[in-house]
């Protein structure tokens, strides 16, 4: 529960599978699965970033999809101006500019909105994070230059020198490498003294305050790190889909990210990845049978919430016959 020790076996297995399987499919001429895996890995980074504040910090942010959008627009907008002119200051196809921009703008947005959101708690917090995400949504809807509702086509992918994002396999391994780094970062943070305070504030905020911790600041820092990381994932998503629209920031997508974290098992290292994998598989499989795939998906979500406490990891633990005692193992 509190993230003891080295990365566990599950993490190693999952990463190894992610490295091997899509490559195999790719060389057997099936591009579809590599696409699927790329999406999985990018959403995985977003879920890992959300897990830092949701799983370890207990902050139920319902607006994380906004960072995916911000990150993607930070790739799309400079590329748009590089092609059509205007705004010379940011017009470029260079990934060395776009990706740091995505991280910086996301961090700034997280800082400003987080400073306000974190003054509140509980339901207020949930609703306000949703509202701020919706604000970004409407912001991009209102800008005609970047396609408004219709979205923006990213004509040129980020140029990063040695790495060629137009090559699907290179893009995939860049994303997978980023995922590993993101997981390592979150692992490091939650086990540090900072992480202990963050988790302590989740477990008992009053106690932490009475010990002398200004928990507001610790949460704000975690919130900014999480936002920046998700913005990075957004930059990758923009490069992957080569298209960005406000719809990507719709709150249903924030809900899906939360679903990944919770269903995979919040505050575990591998949970967010399992959750994203589960989501991608559910989406793919169900949508093949029916265009109404949201119906079984919604029912499943309801069933998990109503009948299974602890999400997937909880279910797995129970199957193994382990008691759900936090801190054990």
């Amino acid at each position: 529960m509190t993230g003891f020790g080295k990365p566990g076996l599950p993490v190693v297995v999952v990463v190894a599978l992610l490295a091997v399987l899509p490559t195999w499919f790719h060389f057997n001429g099936d591009a579809f699965y590599l696409d699927l895996a790329t999406r999985l890995v990018i959403l995985g980074i977003a879920a890992v970033s959300l897990n830092l504040i949701l799983g370890y910090g207990g902050l139920v942010s319902f607006g994380h999809a906004a960072y995916l959008g911000i990150g993607a627009y930070c790739v799309g907008i400079p590329a748009h101006h590089a092609l059509y002119g205007g705004l010379d200051a940011i017009a470029t196809n260079s990934g060395w500019f776009q990706i740091p921009l995505a991280v910086a703008v996301s961090a700034l947005f997280a800082l400003v909105t987080g400073a306000i959101c974190l003054r509140t708690k509980g339901v207020h917090f949930i609703m306000i994070t949703m509202a701020f995400a919706q604000m970004v949504y409407y912001f991009f809807v209102s800008i005609d230059e970047y396609g408004a509702d219709d979205g923006l086509v990213i004509d040129t992918r980020s140029e990063l020198g040695l790495i060629d994002f137009d090559n699907p396999l290179q893009l995939y391994f860049f994303c997978l490498g980023s995922l590993v780094v993101a997981m390592a970062l979150v692992h490091m943070i939650v086990n540090s003294r900072f992480g202990m305070v963050l988790q302590g504030a989740k477990g008992n905020n009053d106690r932490m305050v009475s010990l002398g911790y200004n928990t507001y600041l610790y949460r704000l820092v975690a919130y900014v790190i999480s936002g920046a990381m998700c913005g990075f994932a957004g930059a990758l998503l923009g490069n992957f889909t080569t298209f960005i629209s406000p719809e990507m920031m719709d709150w249903s997508h924030s809900g899906e990210l939360m679903f990944m974290v919770i269903l995979g098992g919040a505050s575990t290292a591998v949970g967010p990845i399992l959750g994203s994998a589960a989501f991608i598989i559910i989406e793919e499989v169900l949508s093949r049978f029916t265009i109404y795939w949201h119906l079984p998906f919604g029912l499943m979500l309801l069933a998990v919430v109503l009948f299974a406490r602890g999400g997937f990891s909880g279910i797995i633990d129970r199957l193994r016959g382990r008691k759900l005692l936090p801190g054990e193992g």
Partner: peptide, 12 residues
Amino acid sequence: DHVLGTFGLILV
């Protein structure tokens, strides 16, 4: 749980 449950309900 409220949020996730009612989110599922919306989809349904």
